[in-house]
């Protein structure tokens, strides 16, 4: 995975930009993510396209992680998702004001050898790493900005 990713707003090859999504840092808000994917994003692809499943999975895992671990004091905050579509890829930028956290710095998932050893902590980020084609992280203006790219 490369960190050389063009920001949505600065790319001239961008075909069109789909609506953005604002969520509160509350797990109940993930319902809104599902609705957004089903309405605004799904129309960009064939219904059966595997890419929709991958986008759903990765955004679900990333947002769950932000909500569960990003706000130790439970302060109400917003999470912003921007989507843009390119000729050969779809890109999402996820911005949050949670504590500084680079998902790429998380330890590699250790596969358990037995069921007794099995823990699922960290599995979400393992899935993210496996299902995105490119991703990058920056910390700017007290925001975590994580960009993920899926090739079409």
């Amino acid at each position: 995975m490369s960190s050389e990713i063009t920001k949505c707003s600065a790319d001239s090859d961008k075909l069109k930009e789909s609506p953005c999504l604002f969520l509160n840092n509350n797990l109940d808000e993930l319902v809104l993510l599902n609705q957004w994917l089903e309405t605004d994003i799904s129309q960009l692809f064939e219904k059966s396209d595997k890419i929709l499943f991958k986008i759903d999975l990765v955004l679900t895992e990333l947002l769950s992680n932000i909500v569960n671990y990003g706000y130790l004091d439970k302060t109400k905050s917003e999470i912003f998702i921007r989507c843009c579509v390119f000729q050969d890829a779809i890109q999402f930028e996820i911005e949050d004001y949670g504590i500084e956290f680079n998902p790429l710095s998380a330890p590699e998932h250790i596969f358990p050898q037995t069921l007794e050893q099995a823990k699922v902590g960290g599995l979400g980020l393992h899935l993210v790493r496996n299902y995105v084609d490119k991703c990058s992280y920056v910390r700017e203006q007290k925001k975590n900005i994580f960009t993920i790219v899926f090739f079409r």
């Binding site: 759903d56 679900t60 769950s64 069921l115 099995a118 699922v120 599995l123 979400g124 899935l127």
Partner: peptide
């Protein structure tokens, strides 16, 4: 038709309990 890591956790927890 969809499963995230929390679904995996559900299955692993039940499987461990059965074991």
């Amino acid at each position: 038709d969809f499963m995230s890591s929390i679904g995996i956790r559900l299955l692993v927890t039940a499987s461990k309990a059965q074991l």
